[in-house]
Simulated assay, not measured.
Amino acid sequence: MAKKVVATLKKEGGVTYAKVIRAVKSEKTGAYSFKEEMVPTPMVQETLKK
């Protein structure tokens, strides 16, 4: 199934995507966890500003 998803994201002429991985600190424990998102390439800077 993963191969099918990757193949559809790489279609020619379609929207290009970027994987954004952010470290998020837990207020409760102080430990870091990682949040992954797939966003269209033009929206990467907006996503990182959040």
Rank of each mutant, 00 (worst) to 15 (best):
K11W: 00
Y17K: 01
F34W: 09
K11Q: 09
G30N: 02
K11V: 05
K3V: 13
T29N: 09
A7E: 12
K28W: 05
V5I: 14
P40Q: 06
M43E: 05
A18P: 00
V20P: 00
T29D: 15
K3C: 15
E27W: 03
G14L: 00
I21K: 06
Y17S: 00
K35W: 11
A18G: 06
E12Y: 02
L48S: 10
S33T: 12
K25V: 13
S26F: 07
K49W: 06
A31V: 12
K50D: 14
F34V: 10
Y32I: 10
T16C: 09
M43C: 05
F34E: 14
E12A: 08
T41F: 06
M43T: 02
L9S: 09
K19Y: 05
T16Y: 03
K28L: 11
I21A: 14
A31C: 15
R22M: 13
E37F: 04
A2T: 15
G14W: 00
T47S: 11
K28F: 03
A23C: 07
A7S: 12
T29A: 11
T29P: 05
K11P: 00
G30T: 01
V20C: 12
V20S: 02
Q45C: 12
K35S: 14
V39M: 04
M1A: 15
K28H: 06
K49P: 06
K10N: 14
I21G: 07
K3G: 15
E37N: 07
Y17N: 02
Y17H: 02
K10H: 09
E12S: 10
A23E: 07
G14T: 00
K28N: 11
K28A: 13
K35F: 13
T47H: 09
A7L: 13
E36S: 13
K19L: 08
V24Y: 10
Q45F: 07
I21F: 03
E12W: 01
K10W: 05
E27V: 03
A7G: 08
E46S: 11
M1C: 15
T29C: 09
E27R: 04
E36D: 11
V44T: 00
A7P: 01
R22A: 14
K3Y: 15
K19N: 07
G13A: 02
M1Y: 12
E37D: 13
A23D: 08
